[in-house]
Computed example of a mutant assay.
Amino acid sequence: MNRLWRANARVVGSTDGREEEGAVSVVLAHGYGASQAVWHKLVPSLSQRHKLLLFDWDFTATGAGKDDQEVYTFGRFADELIAVMEERGVGASGAVVVAHSMSAMAACIAAQRRPDLFAHIFLVCASPRYINSEEEGYVGGFDEAAIQGMLAAMESDFDAWVKGFVPNAAGDASAVEHLSKSFLAMDPGVAVKLAKMIFLGDQREVLDGVKTPCTIVQVKADFAAPPSVAEYMQLRMKGTAATVEIIDSVGHFPQLVAPQQLLDILDGVLRLREAAAAAEHDAGSVEITDGIDVAM
């Protein structure tokens, strides 16, 4: 398995010496067609108070996943997420992992495999299944014929598909140029393989095993992952405290078109995690009558 993509991982930001007070590290995991650059509107604010881990999955232009024999699965991405967190020393005391689009289900799997690394999973525009299932009453947003048609268009002329797909995914003209460059930087063969993994897959059973506290953030007008998917995910995550937040925006990339709304929700989660960590730290010591605190 190619690991050269890890060379693109970087840790930025500062905890300002607040680790002992429960400062929380943040991992930013981008989705399909993007790179770590997709977080550029969030990084300046987040890095003032938190240590951030950013990286590129190996399907980006800077990645190395262009081997025709490469096999992509959500489980593989979960293992790579765990590996990069360990290698960069992020998550030793539990990190808040912000996972966009396809990274969301990888994060759910990774949190089950290594719960010690994950204090909270923050899922942005997530979907465990894109294809509708009438017999189950599940609305994923697409019928299978539409997905097969999209995949055929990608295989036929990837560049033309990108030019048609990106404006809908962006939701705002201001994000089209950024995303077009990012999507077109992918190797077309790799892009199609990943698209099949994502759009034909069914990861709904993964939700049953999620134990890590979770925030599911969906965009009100996201053609790829409608709010009904977020509601389904919340109901199925019976093993944890899962909440849903809806951003009043359009498109599949709120970090580009509605960054402040996304930051506001994330900041609330981070402050709660810091308060919880600080409380745990305080509970770990007992005050002795002579005024000396002894760690438990």
Rank of each mutant, 00 (worst) to 15 (best):
A278E: 12
Y138S: 07
L266D: 03
G268Q: 01
G63R: 02
A241S: 12
G164V: 08
V84Q: 00
L4K: 07
T212R: 05
V166K: 07
M150G: 05
K163I: 06
K163F: 06
D79P: 04
A23M: 08
R76K: 09
P254K: 07
G94H: 11
G251F: 04
R271S: 02
Q261V: 04
N2S: 04
M102Y: 03
A175Y: 09
A34V: 11
Y72H: 04
L28W: 00
A173V: 12
K51V: 15
V217I: 06
K238R: 04
L54S: 06
L266G: 08
A9Q: 13
P213S: 10
N2F: 03
L53M: 07
H40N: 04
K51M: 13
V71P: 03
V206C: 03
D67P: 10
S133P: 01
L151C: 11
S101A: 07
G140C: 04
I246R: 06
E280N: 11
P227V: 09
K66N: 15
F74A: 09
K211V: 12
G33M: 08
A111H: 11
S180D: 04
V97C: 04
G33E: 05
H100K: 08
I216W: 00
R76H: 07
T60C: 14
D282S: 12
Q260T: 10
A160H: 11
I288N: 02
L46T: 10
Q203F: 10
H30I: 14
D56H: 12
A241I: 13
G201M: 15
Q218R: 06
A99I: 15
F253R: 02
M154F: 03
G239P: 12
D159H: 13
A276N: 08
L194W: 01
L4H: 08
V250A: 10
E80Q: 07
L262Q: 10
V71G: 05
V27W: 00
R113M: 03
G22C: 15
S35C: 13
F74M: 11
A23L: 10
Q112W: 09
Q112D: 08
G209N: 11
Y130T: 12
P259V: 10
V26E: 00
G268L: 01
A78S: 13
S133V: 06
G33F: 06
S103Y: 06
T240H: 02
K193R: 09
L53Y: 07
E80C: 01
K193Q: 11
F118E: 00
R76Y: 08
G291L: 04
I109F: 01
A277I: 12
D290W: 04
R3P: 04
F122N: 00
D116Y: 09
S47Q: 14
V162E: 00
S174N: 03
V257G: 12
F183M: 14
M1S: 15
A92C: 04
L262H: 05
H252L: 10
M197H: 15
L184Y: 12
Q218V: 07
S101H: 05
A195I: 06
P254I: 05
K66H: 15
H178E: 03
K51W: 12
A242R: 01
H281W: 10
H100I: 06
V24D: 02
M105N: 13
N168Y: 03
D208N: 09
T240F: 01
G63A: 08
F253Q: 06
A279H: 14
I288H: 06
L52F: 12
